[in-house]
Nucleic acid binder design. Structure first.
Lengths: 128, 128
DNA sequence: GGTTGCATTAGAGCGCGCTCTAAGCTGTAA
DNA sequence: TTACAGCTTAGAGCGCGCTCTAATGCAACC
C-alpha cells in the first residue's frame, strides 16, 4: 500500500539523526508511527512531512516544549486550528524581531570590520 | 579621575546580571577590571564599551569559547587586528546565512498561517 | 553591639537538546 | 554455526551558558 521508510531513510530525508527521531517520538511530538513485523519503525509519507515541519519549527528556535504543545493540538484535530495559528503567529513576530536585532548587530559588526580595515591600512602605510 | 561603576550599574548598562558579569570575567573575557578599597569591582567606561560589545557578539550566537578567543587576541594588541577582522567576517557571513534560513522558514510558516486562516473561514461558513 | 545591605569567592546545580551506551532481538550471508 | 548489521529500549551522560548557594567580609545606620 504505502511505501514505508526505515529510520535511516527518515534520517536522510529530514537531517535528524536516528537518535533524535526516537527522542522526538519519546517526548510526544511524533505519535502513531507504525512498526513492521520486526518491531522496527516504519514511517509513512505523512510522517515525513510532519517531521520536516518540526525541523522548520526547530530551526526557528522554537523550544521542544512548545513544539510538543503544538503537536498535542494537532492530535486533537481541526478544532484546534485557531489556537495553532495563534501560536505560529506569535513565533512569527518573535522571529521577525529577532531578525531585526540580528540585522542591527550585523551592522555594528560591519562597522567594526571597517574600522579594523582602516587600522590594517595604517599599519601597512606605517611600515613603508 | 575616572568615574567608576559598581557591578549593579554595569549590570543595568549592559543587561547582564551581576552573576553573568563575574562569570564572563572568570572565563577570561574581561581582564584588568579594577577594584575599590573594599575589594569591590569598579568598572571603567572602557569596560562598559567592551562588555556592550561582548553582548552584541553573544546576541549573534557566538559561543563563549569564540568570544574568549577574540578577547585574547584583543589583549595581545594591534598586531592581532587582522585575525580579529577575519573572525568577525566569518561570523558575519554565518549570521547572514542564518538570517536567510530564518527568512525561508518564516515564509513557510506564513504559508501555514494562511492555510489555517482558510480552514477557519471554511468552518465558519460551514456553521452558517 | 547588632542588623542591614551589598559585595566577594569557589564551586554546585540547572534546563536544554540532544547524544550515546548497554543489553538484547531478528534476519541474512559466509 | 557463527558472525554481522540494523534495529529496539531505558536510561545515563554531555556541552553549553548561565544561575544560584554558602560562607565570609566590610561599611553604615539604629
Amino acid at each position: 500500500m504505502e511505501n514505508l521508510l526505515t529510520i535511516q531513510e527518515m534520517s536522510r530525508l529530514t537531517g535528524l539523526s536516528a537518535h533524535t527521531l526516537r527522542y522526538y517520538e519519546k517526548v510526544g511530538m511524533l505519535e502513531g508511527v507504525s512498526r513492521n513485523e520486526q518491531g522496527y519503525r516504519a514511517y509513512s509519507e505523512a510522517d515525513v512531512s510532519w517531521v520536516q515541519f518540526l525541523v522548520i519549527l526547530r530551526e526557528l528556535d522554537i523550544p521542544i516544549r512548545e513544539m510538543k504543545r503544538y503537536s498535542d493540538l494537532r492530535s486533537q484535530g481541526p478544532s484546534t486550528v485557531h489556537e495553532r495559528r495563534l501560536m505560529l503567529e506569535a513565533h512569527q513576530s518573535r522571529v521577525q524581531q529577532q531578525m531585526r536585532k540580528l540585522g542591527d548587530n550585523l551592522g555594528k559588526i560591519a562597522d567594526k570590520i571597517q574600522y579594523y580595515k582602516g587600522m590594517e591600512e595604517e599599519v601597512e602605510a606605517g611600515i613603508k
